[in-house]
Design a protein around this nucleic acid. Structure first.
Lengths: 158, 158
DNA sequence: CTTAAAGAGGACTAAAATAGTCCCCTATGC
DNA sequence: GCATAGGGGACTATTTTAGTCCTCTTTAAG
C-alpha cells in the first residue's frame, strides 16, 4: 500500500551515494558503478534531479554531478516531488472533471488531510538521514514490528 | 506522489455511502446508482471488502450489504489493507532477492520509518470521518503531532 | 581546432500494474 | 422453480512505469 516508485527509490540511493562520497563530484557512470543501477537509468534520474535543482552539474570533460545543497537541506519530500511531482493521494485533486461520483469530494477532502500529514512527515526526513550520515540508527525498536508485519505479506500490488 | 489507487478511493466512497445510508442494508446495484460508480466495479469492490471483513453480506432475494462494524471502528488503514494489501513504501521489504544495490537497504530501512508513520496516521482516520459523519475536521492536531513525533524518532539524534 | 568525455533532451519500446467487464455458480424468498 | 441477490474468478484493455537509445551541446586537453 502506498508505494513509492522504484525510480524514486533509486534516486534516493543515488543521492545517498553522492552524499556519502568523499569527493564532491561524481559522474553518472561512476554513480552507476557504485550503486549497481543501470547506467542509462542513473543518467535519466540525475537529469531529473538536476531539473528539480537537487543536484548541480558540470558539463564537458571532467564534468559530473554534485549535490546542490547540503544533505541536511534536502528532504525526502523534495526528492519525491522531483521524481513523481506534487501528486495528491487521490486523483480528484488534480483532475476535477470526472468527479461525477456522489460523496466523492467529501471523502477526497478527508484524504487530503491524511495527505498533508504524510507530506509533513516526509519534509522532516532529510537526505542525510536516508544516507545514514547521522550516527543514529534508522531502525528503531518501535519500527521493527512494523517492518516485520509488512514483510510478512509478499507480492507487490500498489 | 504517493497516490492511492482509484479502486481504493472508490471503496471508501462506497463504504461512506453505506455508512450514511438511513437503511442499514443496500444492494450492490443501489450502491452503484448512489455513487455513480459502474456496477461491476462496485460488486468487485464489495466482494473484496466482504473478504476483508469490513462489510457483511446477505445472499439471496432481498440480500445486500451492510457495514460489518460501526463506522467508527473501521479505519482508513483497514480499507487500504483490504484493497491493496499491507504493502510497504519500498519494494525491498517484500522482495529481497534483487537487493544488489549498494546502500539500498540502508535507505530502504529509513523509508520504513516513514511508512510506519503513515500507517499510524491512517489508523487514526475512521470511516465515520471519511464519510463526514463526524463534525470533526479530518485533519486532526493529534494526528499531525503523532506523525511529527515519529519522524523525529526516525531521524534519531539531529 | 580537433577530439574525447561528459551532460541534456527527448523519442521510443517493453513490461507490469491497474481498472474494468463478463460469465457461471450458489443462496434465498416468494 | 424462478427471479433476485451475492461469490468467485477468468479474461481483456488501458494506463503507468521502467528502461534503452540516439542525437546534440559543452568543455578541457592535446
Amino acid at each position: 500500500m502506498l508505494r513509492i516508485s522504484r525510480l524514486t527509490d533509486y534516486a534516493t540511493v543515488i543521492l545517498a551515494a553522492l552524499a556519502r562520497s568523499p569527493v564532491p563530484q561524481m559522474t553518472a557512470a561512476s554513480l552507476a558503478a557504485r550503486t549497481r543501477i543501470a547506467p542509462p537509468t542513473v543518467s535519466k534520474l540525475l537529469k531529473q534531479l538536476h531539473r528539480a535543482g537537487l543536484v548541480a552539474s558540470t558539463r564537458g570533460l571532467h564534468g559530473g554531478y554534485q549535490l546542490a545543497k547540503g544533505a541536511d537541506d534536502i528532504s525526502a519530500a523534495a526528492i519525491l516531488d522531483a521524481l513523481e511531482g506534487p501528486l495528491a493521494l487521490t486523483e480528484c485533486s488534480s483532475r476535477e472533471s470526472q468527479c461525477d461520483i456522489e460523496g466523492h469530494c467529501r471523502v477526497s477532502r478527508a484524504w487530503q488531510g491524511v495527505n498533508g500529514a504524510i507530506r509533513r512527515s516526509l519534509q522532516d526526513v532529510t537526505l542525510a538521514q536516508l544516507a545514514g550520515l547521522e550516527n543514529e540508527p534508522t531502525r528503531l525498536p518501535v519500527l521493527e514490528q512494523e517492518v516485520k508485519f509488512i514483510a510478512t505479506r509478499t507480492r507487490g500490488a500498489s
